[in-house]
Design a protein around this nucleic acid. Structure first.
Lengths: 235, 235
DNA sequence: AGGAAAACCTGAATTTTATCATAATTTTGT
DNA sequence: ACAAAATTATGATAAAATTCAGGTTTTCCT
């Protein structure tokens, strides 16, 4: 966790405008900025550990984060991702429980730590912020429920197809249709809930079926409608 | 949805004392009572449908409720349960999204509908209530994450054992160690995320192993420590 | 009470998925 | 740049779980 000189001010932080902090008043932004603490992380660094207590939240100023639990046999299960403008650690903070997941960077990242007191102040004093918080938690809960149903009912092939689409929606595609996040096959398996070998095999099936193109850890989506059909998504 | 004469007052409602409404002031309780609307449901009745919009929440005054999603092949996935003192429908209300799950009674039940305006008022005016709401959502989110990891990583046998323990914790045991909720084998399968036949087979295995005793839909837990071992739970 | 429907149970066959072994390729550290 | 380590890949095998088919029992309805 190396700290570098140029810690950006919240006022000018690009991430803030996409975040839960986007509608704060100038005074509140200054307040937030004074309380925060920005840190830089290398790729693969752990930000916090499942089971620990937190005394604040982390706001992703730059980079990509995975949140994961360690299952019984020591296997990692990726629960969700966070990117620029997202906050992490709020679940444990608000429930006053230990962290339910660990967080690690997927690439070089910068995160600002905002202490509990500051978050609580904003919740208490800014109804709009409070409502955003409630809305975010509720939304997350709905996403989690959907994932539960998919894990319980869909075969691996469908879950992998859907995971690719979720990654697309979370991290977007570049101009060449390549998903803008680099994950190992094992990490993909740890989202889908399957064995690494199964991911490798199915990705190569998708390749043969001209649904995707693979170059190292870059995945290019060639046929999103068909991939959606394979994923067998509702709605 | 038959309405009966004797709609209890919130002030004297036993469920309220176990609920998120337990610390309201007398004035607030009167306010809540004036806004609410109590309804009675037969066993198996649907309270609300996934995909619909809600304009309030339901508080379980009496009875047991299952919340479930319908997956692609029309298969039900039970997401969570609610019992006396629990509220349902708050996720959709707060996220301003359609309901992510349907709710149906597992036995004769009574639920009070509390309109959105009343909930919003309490959130805005009672910081303690607001905080309880945040805490409840965060807690639920943690539970959901744990379920995701288990579904993704554990075999059916372990998940079934754990489901029995979760049912025990949710609905308690009577003096004869019988879980106080009646579910069909299919419903159990729809929690565990497996086929009905698998549940039948595994329950009969558990019976042979003297972990449980089964009489119709009553499940008696004979050896909770060993069941915990079979469930292979962390922590 | 009696018949229909639903739920429960069991075995066999099939499918899905994981595991193991081994090799090729890529990445990483010095 | 090079050796070691990690990741990716592929085939063979084994295990897990579902599906199908057939019964039996229980519950529900009039």
């Amino acid at each position: 966790m190396k700290k570098r000189p140029e810690s950006p001010h919240c006022e000018t932080c690009g991430a803030r405008h996409k975040s839960i902090f986007c509608t704060l008043s100038p005074d509140e932004v200054n307040d937030l900025d004074a309380s925060k603490n920005c840190n830089f992380y290398d790729k693969g660094q752990v930000i916090f550990h499942e089971g620990n207590r937190v005394n604040g939240i982390y706001c992703v100023s730059k980079g990509k984060i995975k949140l994961f639990q360690i299952g019984n046999e020591g296997k990692e299960q990726i629960i969700r991702f966070a990117k620029e403008g997202d906050i992490i650690g709020y679940r444990a903070l608000l429930s006053e429980e230990p962290l339910s997941a660990s967080a690690a960077t997927l690439e070089e990242s910068a995160l600002c730590f905002v202490p509990k007191s500051q978050i609580m102040k904003m919740i208490a004093e800014n109804p709009n912020f409070n409502f955003k918080m409630l809305k975010m938690l509720s939304h997350e809960l709905g996403e989690a429920a959907r994932i539960i149903t998919e894990l319980a009912q869909k075969p691996v092939r469908e879950r992998l197809a859907e995971t690719l689409l979720i990654l697309k929606n979370t991290f977007e595609l570049d101009e060449k249709q390549v998903i803008q996040v680099k994950l190992s096959r094992e990490e993909i398996a740890n989202i889908v809930g399957t064995a690494t070998e199964s991911v490798i095999r199915l990705l190569s099936d998708f390749k043969k079926e001209k649904l995707i193109e693979v170059e190292g850890r870059n995945i290019k989506l060639l046929n999103i409608p068909e991939l959606t059909r394979v994923a067998n998504v509702f709605e």
